[in-house]
Nucleic acid binder design. Sequence first.
DNA 1: CTTCGGATTGACCGCAAGGTTAGTGGCGGT
DNA 2: ACCGCCACTAACCTTGCGGTCAATCCGAAG
Lengths: 220, 220
Amino acid sequence: MVTEGVSRPGSGESRAQDSRDEILRAATDLFATRGFHETSMAEVARSAGVSKALIFWHFKNKEELFVAVLGKLLEPYVIDFAEESGALDEKSQLLKLIESYLQFVRENANSIRFLVAQILRDEAGHDSLSSQVLSLFEGYRSLVTELIARAQAKGICACNVPPPEAAGFLLAALNGLLIGRLFLGSGTTDLDTGGKMLQQWLFGDKLGFAQTPQFMNPDK
Amino acid sequence: MVTEGVSRPGSGESRAQDSRDEILRAATDLFATRGFHETSMAEVARSAGVSKALIFWHFKNKEELFVAVLGKLLEPYVIDFAEESGALDEKSQLLKLIESYLQFVRENANSIRFLVAQILRDEAGHDSLSSQVLSLFEGYRSLVTELIARAQAKGICACNVPPPEAAGFLLAALNGLLIGRLFLGSGTTDLDTGGKMLQQWLFGDKLGFAQTPQFMNPDK
DNA sequence: CTTCGGATTGACCGCAAGGTTAGTGGCGGT
DNA sequence: ACCGCCACTAACCTTGCGGTCAATCCGAAG
């Protein structure tokens, strides 16, 4: 009879799962910092505290381990934006969308870095990763497009370019802020300031910019 | 006596240079498309039409070949923007700056892709590449900052955020357009549209957006 | 206790990579 | 004509990789 539950240390049922998780954790670390080709299975094994052969018992080959890592990395990306903003008006929804994008970038900078590097490498987009990320992005994009269209129809939107272009530009700006954060950690526009400027661009809100007074050209 | 000039095919002086250039060309191609670790010296040799050993005669090792390639890739990046826009007013200079940035992205998408991947890989910024690109970017950034400050002082600038923030946002938006082009070739805001929207944001110019009529919400 | 099967390992293999070396061809100088 | 050196090559060496295999360990069921 199966009296064992789950996750008992050393219990028969969970031992395989434990080692598998540990391998996945180590592989995620190493792949994310060193990259795919620069990480050897021996390194993963050592870092996970298991033998190299055990990795090949869990995963058919290095490629399969890699896609498992990708899957694990992509998990936090699939949050349903539309879900969590039901009863808000268009402006609040857009602001919330921007804020959650920036928040997400803040929290997942490392894995984003890794995924970007990975996407840049596979060249042809034949990989599933590119298309996954792309469809994720497209969902976000179409959501923003529709929100802007409705906001414009209600007259609460200061910018008057067609919604698809506006949405594209909005996302481009957000991605640009992301890039700034990824490449040039400090010295660039920080995320919140960028978000505020997008808000100003979208709705014409006047916002206080209290920083860098040495540049407020006090001449004349 | 040295009667030979340069670049005569088969002449003693230039033979080494020719083969070196050919190797560099092949290596640049392969590194840019496949990446560093995915490109073997044998491939480079075959693509360059020379023996593998000759590569090691020209370059101490694979790493040195790689930095030579990086140097060659970075060459077109160091164009002096300030030089080529002497007698223009601030608005024209800014527009020209934006246009040349977009033009550059259009023409060098492949090498940019490669450099980005490379920068993302080295993690700590200890590499010379990151700092080179970063200083390049900083120059561009400070130039834009000053231009915006002067434009605001003359009252020809519609946007009223502090110049450093405005410049940062402008560059972020440009980088975002770049990202769109790099990742999701089509289906995103194309470069020119993005440039026009930036122009509108900076100077408040009204511009015609003739495209995507199916989205002009003809309801009501 | 024995048995059974999933979990785990050390030792091993083939191979392709980066790198080396001994040697050859050919051109310029004398 | 000969020599010396630069450019260049074929073949080789070594290392470390992804991947395999037979052998073991170990908890659970009978």
